[in-house]
Design a protein around this nucleic acid. Structure first.
Lengths: 356, 356
DNA sequence: TTTAGCACTCATTTTCCCTGAGTGCTAAGC
DNA sequence: GCTTAGCACTCAGGGAAAATGAGTGCTAAA
């Protein structure tokens, strides 16, 4: 059965009110809304219908109504008003984003923090790199006192390095040869092509500095496989405590612990094929622990073959309109920021290299 | 007035019991302890004395006693029994630590996580580097298509890099010259010696590739000043929720928010001159928000001119013996680990370099 | 079709009383 | 002079009972 306009209006009102107050909504409260010209009795009838249709629920006989999962779903899909970000909001999001982001892992952390802050809910942020980077170029630099710096340039323009200290002395000439050998034999390969046979073959032709080869190789494979990995950060778990439904410490703790890693790790999987902003209402969540909890997620693009995702976890009663609006805006801004090459320096990366 | 042996024994028992149960301790409970040959009346008298002396407090007339801040202080300083770590505990700490640690920021995070886990309390971990690193060596590598890789080797054996993309083409020869100029003029300097005058001077003698100089310089100064910075991580805030005194969500939230950054940032300052493990009981804390909370901290050594600190925050009623024991052991193990150069590879560092 | 009115339900709040742990003091015992 | 048994007293916490009031469904009139 299709819902009448009036029923929709009532349902929307109930959800809106419940989102605001976190208390079951009674017929009287609805009548007091501006733009509601019916009496409480009429509303009661409508609410009775909506309850029968499964969009509302009644915690107990003498209480008001609360949206069911189906109710939220309908609300999210059709009913909710577009939330217009205020100037203030967009501005604060923008300035937050524009602070230079350093490395990917830092970025992920920072984004999680920002999103959590913007929504006042716990947030997740994930950046994952499809596997497939290869080495484009090796370079070895003599650094004095038996130290060699290995520089590896990847196909996606990343540059990595490692300081290697050797017991034996090598000469500039040795390194030249070795560099040539490495570049000839080991570029363009994916991480699983670095086999022991390859190692032997390269060592055979490596000359004096052959002892470096295993180190180079280990570093390279480790690096390449790390490239395929995923960076993930969770921020602001404690914000859940601000929500009345989690004033029960036990409940909060249960959610929080599942917020840590496990259940979250497969959230991105859900995003896989979906596009745009996605909302998972309560029981639609796969993870058992999050049954009372809704999740809102969006993808965004970081260049360099990386995919980003930001998401927010909160009570089913969260303010979907506001949250989705902010999240989408965030995602857009981030994508834009990464797509804009003329933005003066996207900051440099840097790292320690150590080898005792 | 000096405390009699018996008073000390009673005080210790009260604190021990209170730590275990989180409930006010009555005279009867004390008599039931093994090794307590006095009647409850005697204990009552002693407890009355201890209360008068300010070591114990009485929440209300008909309740047992609770240690006061002074009581905890005395307990921590003189009374508490040494906590012997069990084999299991040391083993689990050791295996945790021995997993290879990557970069400093990651290390700080991981250590915080481990400490929090080991103590079941929120933990902080800080690593700060005294300023003072200088550049030992610059190296420029031509990377094809108008790209140049800048490699900077610091005095503390860190190696950093940055990929620079240029609108103009430079030749291998240009870079050779520039490298020589850079190494002649800009090594051995601390970050505040990189003045605009220096920049001009270097650019004047840099030849064709002069346009690279500002980029090199900015990267270097930024890098050097970052070296002097502090890495800090907080982990396991939620564990506070496990403690009965924080079952009140509001209280928990208040503490947690101060656990975030602000109040913590000056904790390390307190450690500055102190050595070994330090305990701050409740009101001894500078930060107002932590008045009901105790802090236990220890320093440890990371080499490379870096100082580490780990600390734990918990209710005043925390198990000081256990916590200090674990914390000290942690600190020792960490220091040992960093002091051991023969440990085969302390893992390589790596990083993205980016410049669109 | 809408609405006023009414009887009914039931979670929540308030009130009250009871219980029991714990105390301080006193007087007897070692 | 310590120690301890005994006793009267205090008071937080818990549970039962009562009061409150928000909200409902249904009926009958507009």
């Amino acid at each position: 059965m299709e819902l009448t306009e009036r029923k929709k209006k009532v349902l929307r009102s109930v959800v809106d009110l419940y989102i605001r107050t976190a208390e079951p909504v009674g017929s009287k409260a609805i009548t007091e809304l501006p733009d509601m010209q019916y009496s409480s009795a009429t509303i009661r009838n409508e609410m009775a219908d909506l309850t029968a249709m499964g969009y509302l629920e009644q915690p107990h006989t003498s209480a008001g109504r609360v949206p069911s999962a189906a109710g939220y779903r309908l609300y999210v899909d059709e009913l909710m008003a577009d939330y217009r970000l205020s100037m203030d909001e967009t501005k604060s999001i923008n300035t937050a984003i524009e602070e230079k982001m350093q490395r990917v892992d830092k970025l992920v952390e920072k984004v999680a923090k920002l999103v959590s802050q913007a929504t006042d809910l716990p947030a997740i942020s994930v950046a994952s790199r499809q596997a497939g980077a290869t080495v484009r170029r090796f370079e070895l630099i003599l650094a004095g006192q038996g130290s060699v710096i290995l520089v590896v340039m990847l196909s996606d323009d990343q540059v990595l390095n490692k300081l290697i200290k050797l017991p034996v002395n090598v000469t500039e000439a040795d390194l030249k040869i070795l560099t040539a050998v490495l570049n000839a034999a080991m570029t363009g390969l994916s991480s699983d092509e670095f086999t022991p046979e390859l190692l032997e073959r390269v060592m055979a032709s490596a000359g004096t500095a052959a002892s470096l080869v295993p180190i180079v190789m280990e570093f390279t494979t480790e690096t390449l496989s790390r490239q395929a990995s995923t960076n993930m950060a969770v921020a602001g778990q404690m914000r859940l405590l601000g929500q009345p439904e989690y004033r029960d410490v036990d409940k909060a703790q249960r959610i929080m612990s599942s917020l840590d890693e496990d259940a979250l790790a497969n959230l991105p999987a859900v995003m896989q094929n979906a596009n745009g902003t996605q909302v998972l209402v309560g029981p639609e969540n796969v993870a058992q622990e999050l049954k009372d909890t809704s999740v809102v997620m969006t993808k965004f693009d970081i260049g360099d073959g990386m995919q980003g995702m930001i998401g927010v976890v909160g009570p089913t009663r969260m303010d979907y309109a506001k949250v989705t609006a902010r999240l989408s805006y965030f995602a857009e801004s981030l994508s834009k920021m990464f797509a804009k090459p003329e933005q003066p320096q996207l900051p440099a990366a840097q790292e320690d290299a150590k080898e005792d």
